[in-house]
């Protein structure tokens, strides 16, 4: 009884209807958080005493990197749910989230390189943090490739779930790389247990963009999942009525 909601999550129709109600709120929140964080970070946060204004790249670099890692952890959790409970929706979530995570990893790497040039004098160094982040990108590519290479839906789901679970070992390596090895990369700007060393004017915008990026991820993931569900359930009556409804609303028939 207590797990009923958990199994209902596996019902595509129910998920589709619920996510449709969440989506506008999530999108609005994303725009609000990201824009206010970015404007605050770019124009109102004080410059860093060492890095000057180049540190403002942080307000997109850090959220992208955190999202990239959180997304991978989510893939691993989906993998476990798929393997243990055989809930198909877990595989849908995994397949839909992987490309978004890969994009975010790429953004973190590219904005990091752009930040590295004025700060370290180099676009790229083979340093523990950067290398483990590059491995994360390849793990994402691996999952995406596996998912599309195997035609049997069931075996593809299983292979992706296993790769996602095995690859999660990379996440603590990324997290602690700046502590375990000597690296150019600065250590974490935020921790859950300590007060940030930055003034509030510097870290509050970062908090806003971080929350904004998470909302962005939620909204994009819902968009992708909803489309995937429509495709997978295209023979059911609820999808067909959804198709007719949207078609009639958007494109009047002459």
């Amino acid at each position: 009884m207590a797990f009923q909601w958990f199994y209902r999550l596996g019902s595509p129709k129910w998920f589709y209807e619920l996510s449709g109600r969440f989506l506008p709120w999530l999108s609005g929140l994303t725009v609000l958080l990201v824009i206010s964080g970015v404007v605050w970070g770019l124009a109102f946060a004080p410059p860093d005493y060492q890095q000057g204004n180049s540190f403002r790249i942080m307000y997109v670099h850090v959220p992208a990197a955190m999202l990239a890692q959180s997304c991978y952890v989510m893939l691993a959790i989906c993998g476990v749910v798929r393997l243990v409970w055989k809930i198909k929706l877990a595989d849908v979530v995994l397949q839909c989230a992987a490309p978004v995570g890969a994009w975010m990893t790429a953004v973190a790497l590219v904005t990091g390189a752009i930040w590295g040039k004025p700060t370290w004098g180099s676009w790229w160094v083979w340093d523990a943090r950067l290398t483990s982040m590059l491995i994360l990108l390849f793990l994402y590519f691996g999952i995406i490739a596996l998912g599309s290479a195997i035609t049997n839906r069931n075996s593809a789901a299983q292979a992706c779930a296993i790769l996602a679970i095995v690859g999660v070992i990379n996440i603590p390596i990324i997290k602690y790389s700046v502590e375990w090895w000597n690296t150019l990369h600065q250590s974490a700007s935020f921790s859950l247990t300590e007060k940030p060393a930055m003034p509030a004017d510097m870290w509050l915008p970062l908090l806003l963009t971080m929350l904004g990026f998470y909302c962005f991820f939620g909204a994009v993931l819902l968009l992708r999942i909803r489309l995937e569900l429509l495709k997978r359930e295209s023979r059911t009556s609820w999808v067909q009525s959804e198709i007719l409804k949207s078609h009639l609303a958007g494109y009047p028939r002459g």
């Binding site: 970015v38 000057g52 180049s54 790249i57 997109v60 904005t111 752009i114 930040w115 004025p118």
Partner: peptide, 15 residues
């Protein structure tokens, strides 16, 4: 951006 404009704006643009 204190002569870092190209870096900051390109990072934001790409993002």
């Amino acid at each position: 951006m204190g002569h870092h404009g190209l870096f900051v704006w390109s990072a934001y643009g790409i993002c």
